[in-house]
Design a protein around this nucleic acid. Structure first.
Length: 937
RNA sequence: GCUCGAGUGGUGGAAUUGGUAGACACGUUGGACUUAAAAUCCAAUGGCCAUUGCGGCCGUGCGGGUUCAAGUCCCGCCUCGAGUACCA
């Protein structure tokens, strides 16, 4: 009987589905273990071999944990809101739900073929109203909360209202907008309802505010900071400009410190933690207020170097700074206007592209130095960013290179406040070896002392204080798109109102077209039935809006990260329609034990999800304030593109080895037309695309050899390898083993289909250990000592490897094991039974089949993992490597009972040792028990 | 620029954490079985020298150091990759 993988795999996939083998129960005697994959966005292209890498790893670990007696939850679902389906809808008019449904179906078929042990009964889809009901619900909870910085926790908004009613806001310490006015209890009670709502909005954890946003005209939407890469949109690469818009924002900055501190409590990859740390960007320093000459306003700045305050010779504001218009003198107005306009026109990208060019303009205004009371000029310059700190800096040219360059360029004085430092060529930014001079009460102090002293003096003056500043910005939460979660919000007199929770979900309305409206409103502006009847609590036609009972609904939708910020908890109780999940469910599952996914989500999904989790924790909805204890970033599987070389201006193509003789362009072609020795199927290429139909080829040795390039697997490079084809030719078990065998999980590595024959022939050898022409060859005889040694060596290594996520080396271990057992002609059931269990996390289909052949019924997945016993590995003696002067010469069998001196004596008496020594007496003999004997001559 | 990470055969990658470097696999070469191919099996495969002798020398990016012993530890460089970037 041959190894018929397609029959076996189909058989067992059917069995698992019918048997519900991998269904996880909520609550169990067993210890829980939660293994999570980052759920995919179901794109139209389907899966390529790179996608399942992480799923295979998590599946191996899940299956292993089941063998170890855990109640394992390993769910899967779809992040099914997203841009591609919407763009497809714009082009074709097809509803995104239909496209998405079709893509999910295809994804499911592909995933099923790979034999994953997912618990599909827990499937979630972010675009399913039954799911996004709870995304909307979390939004409402955020709206109804404020952040108390004394308790360091989110709290219900009613507690804030109670404080306002009793004592106003003067004593409230909250994470809120910067420009909240101060008011007393009687002020508050005298405010109109609308005014009260406006003020509360400045405290809520999700709030509506006019903010500078990243506007992408090509996509017609705003983007979060992490969706903008190098000044262009991450998706599509379109230019992004700054624009003021009223948008929903999430007050993630309230959690900045906790997001930072939490990183120490979780086992996540260091590079990922580093990038979150950078993204949050904590810096310690001081805020300083500079009085303006002739104005009552002050300029507030943030500085990390209050010690250098006596070196401040001017101030610089961002061109967008709100004081600019106010303080500019009539003489300077022309200059300033011209400069502000010029910077507004330049995109972020242009601004970043030439950081070298120094530009700015003088406002004509002067500020007063808090200590010297000297006046210093106020400039504007685009090297100061509106979005960081206060959008204004005190410029200390002797201590900061950017200030230095600016001062040099505009001829502003550069006073030196460092003892014994030459600043004629560049600024001196070293904090460590600094003695402050020329600075009144700071003279002679070090950096640290001076910082403390300066803050102390500023506080005395009431013009500054120590401050921690974060780079992290509040996250813009509105998108001008159709295919996303609708906000459960309607507007009364311009103020947002939440829908009553019991009337969620607010379902997406039908629209005729998916583009923005002619008046520039988001696509939901096209919806006819999109008004809220607040008496009858139902969605009605927009024509009925009367602003008394029937009100307009929000037209924006939520961003992609909304649905993915709570899905891991929803899996715990996915069908609950009364609550987001029951307290019992999350009480049992607690948090994710192992999360596997790509590192591209480092500063987006993985930061936002941590933020929501901490919020849910504050509200008592989650027992843990971090949602995932351990996280692994799987590497990418890269494609090997094939390149042909077209001689410029012709239709002839030159083989790789001859390309140096011509001027050529590189064109990527489909990798399916290349054989193992990089030889091109010329006829195939001619049929492939019309442009090649009449092509001519310049050959070497009668062959056309293509160039190869390792790069990201992508449709546009024609280097995609489809897992379906691999499954057909070699089976899912081979694919699973091979993806693991390619290299360490975390590392990026190129795919090479040719190599799969290695693991495939391993499976065939494994099969033959159990099965011969007539049927099973397994017998009940006692295993030999050798057999047992091979088995237990394998158990030990495989268990260690899985615990350490070194899946690649355990595949090698299996290969060695099978080769050894074959050489030993082992047919003993006592060996082959545990071996099948060992292999089953990696190659589950063949393992099930072999398990059945061994006479068992039921799934091998539920059998305990074999136990490793040391006694089969260690015998009485061991081969010691013997070295002379550090060079290994031979090995020698020695009993483990011997002590150090006895080993030494035995080695020196040995014939080979005598030969090496040639009668000389050694200087020293080093014996490391159990390891090595080194003779130094 | 800053912050991480990595450099080992023709290729992907091992190396029990300081103890015989190159496991395992691909590829290549030779052989067996075949009319032939496929499949399967066997052997060789870091480099150089010696191969009628079972041996020698050099080898983990480069240069130093510690040690009986360094891919592994320390110091100084070089190269590549990832993230981030006018962050005051």
């Amino acid at each position: 009987m041959n190894y018929n993988f397609s029959e076996i795999e189909a058989k067992w996939q059917k069995f698992w589905a019918a048997d519900q083998t991998f269904k996880a129960e909520n609550g169990s005697e067993k210890e829980k273990y939660y293994v999570l994959d980052m759920f995919p966005y179901p794109s139209g292209a389907g899966l390529h071999v790179g996608h399942p890498l992480g799923y295979i790893a998590s599946d191996i670990y899940s299956r292993y944990k089941r063998h170890m007696g855990f109640n394992v939850m390993h769910p899967m679902g779809y992040d099914s809101f997203g841009l591609p389906a919407e763009q497809y809808a714009i082009q074709t008019g097809q509803h995104p739900a239909i496209t998405t449904e079709a893509n999910i179906k295809r994804y499911r078929e592909q995933l099923d073929k790979l034999g994953f042990s997912f618990d599909w009964s827990r499937e979630v889809r972010t675009a399913d109203p039954k799911y996004y009901k709870w995304t909307q619900w979390v939004f409402i909870q955020l709206f109804n909360s404020w952040y108390n910085t004394v308790a360091d926790s989110a709290q219900g908004i009613e507690s804030l209202i109670a404080i306002f009613e009793k004592e106003g806001n003067t004593k409230v310490q909250a994470a809120c907008d910067d420009d909240v006015p101060q008011f007393s209890a009687s002020d508050w009670n005298g405010f109109s309802g609308k005014r009260q709502q406006e003020i509360l909005l400045q405290y809520r954890l999700t709030y509506l505010a006019e903010t500078q946003v990243n506007w992408c005209p090509a996509l017609g939407t705003v983007l979060a900071n992490d969706e903008v890469v190098n000044g262009v949109s991450e998706r599509g690469g379109h230019p992004v400009i700054r624009k003021k818009m009223t948008q929903w924002s999430m007050r993630i900055t309230a959690y900045a410190q906790r997001l930072l501190d939490g990183l120490d409590t979780i086992d996540w990859p260091q590079p990922l933690k580093d990038s979150q740390t950078n993204w949050i960007g904590r810096s310690e320093g001081a805020s300083v207020s500079f009085n303006l000459v002739g104005h009552k306003e002050q300029i507030d700045v943030f500085t990390t170097r209050p010690d250098t305050i006596f070196g401040a010779s001017f101030m610089t504001l961002a061109p967008e700074h709100e004081l600019v218009a106010k303080i500019t003198t009539p003489e300077q107005k022309k200059d300033i206007d011209r400069y502000v306009e010029a910077t507004a026109k330049r995109s972020e990208r242009d601004r970043m592209a030439d950081v070298k060019t120094i530009s700015g303009a003088f406002t004509g205004a002067y500020a007063e130095h808090p200590f010297t009371k000297q006046t210093i000029p106020v400039w504007i310059g685009d090297y100061v960013l509106a979005g960081y700190g206060t959008g204004a800096v005190m410029s200390v040219p002797c201590g900061d290179q950017r200030d230095y360059d600016f001062a040099k360029h505009f001829g502003i004085p550069i006073p030196n406040i460092f003892e014994g430092v030459d600043i004629s060529e560049e600024a001196f930014a070293d904090k460590e070896n600094t003695i402050i001079g020329n600075s009144d009460f700071l003279n002679g102090l070090s950096y640290k002392e001076a910082v403390r002293k300066a803050i102390e003096e500023l506080e005395k003056l009431g013009q500054g204080q120590g401050k921690v500043n974060y780079r992290l910005r509040d996250a813009v939460f509105s998108r001008q798109r159709y295919w996303g979660e609708p906000f459960p919000v309607y507007y009364v007199d311009g103020m947002p109102q939440m829908l009553p929770e019991e009337h969620l979900p607010l379902e997406l309305p039908e629209v005729e077209k998916y583009l923005p409206t002619e008046t520039g409103e988001p696509p939901l502006g096209n919806a006819k039935v999109w008004a809220w009847d607040s008496k009858r609590n139902t969605v009605v036609d927009i024509d009925q809006i009367d602003h008394k009972q029937i009100f307009p609904l929000e037209l924006n939708t939520m961003p992609g990260w909304a649905g993915s910020s709570q899905y891991f908890n929803r899996y715990m109780d996915p069908h609950n329609q009364a609550e987001i999940y029951s307290k019992e469910a999350i009480g049992y599952w607690q948090d994710v034990d192992l999360y596997i996914g790509g590192s591209e989500h480092a500063t987006s999904h993985l930061l936002y999800a941590r933020f929501w989790q901490k919020f849910m924790y504050d509200l008592g909805w989650a027992p843990k304030d971090e949602f995932a204890q351990k996280l692994i970033n799987q590497g990418m599987i890269l494609g090997t593109s094939a390149i042909v070389y077209r001689v410029s201006g012709t239709n002839s193509y030159v083989s790789e080895g001859l390309k140096e003789d011509y001027e050529v362009e590189e064109l990527r072609i489909d990798v399916d037309m290349i054989n193992a020795s990089n030889e091109l199927d010329i006829e195939g290429l001619k049929r492939w695309q019309p442009q090649y139909e009449k092509a001519e080829f310049i050959l070497e040795d009668d062959k056309y050899i293509v160039g190869r390039e390792v790069e990201k697997m992508s449709k546009r490079w024609y280097n995609v390898v489809n897992p379906d084809a691999i499954c057909e030719d070699f089976g899912a078990d081979s694919l699973r083993l091979y993806e693991m065998f390619l290299g360490p999980l975390e590392q990026s590595k190129p795919w090479n289909t040719a190599g799969i024959t290695g693991v495939h022939s391993f499976l065939k050898k494994l099969w033959r250990l159990y099965v011969n022409e007539t049927g099973t060859r397994v017998v009940d005889t006692e295993p030999t000592k050798e057999n047992l040694k091979t088995l237990h060596k394998t158990i030990k290594k495989v268990a260690e490897d899985i615990e350490n996520f070194s899946f690649n080396t355990s595949v090698s271990t299996f290969m060695i094991c099978v080769n050894e057992l074959a050489a030993q002609k082992c047919a003993s059931k006592a060996i082959l039974e545990p071996l099948a269990i060992l292999v089953s996390p990696y190659a589950p289909h063949i393992a099930e089949e072999l398990w059945e052949k061994l006479g068992h019924t039921g799934s091998i997945a539920k059998v305990p993992f074999p136990e490793f016993e040391e006694k089969y590995l260690v015998e009485n003696s061991k081969e010691y490597p013997i070295s002379f002067n550090g060079k290994m010469r031979f090995t020698m069998e020695l009993s483990l009972d011997l002590g150090k001196e006895e080993i030494e004596a035995a080695v020196l008496a040995n014939e080979k040792t005598q030969q090496q020594l040639q009668g000389r007496t050694p200087k020293k003999v080093i014996v490391v028990p159990g390891k090595i004997v080194n003779i130094v001559g």
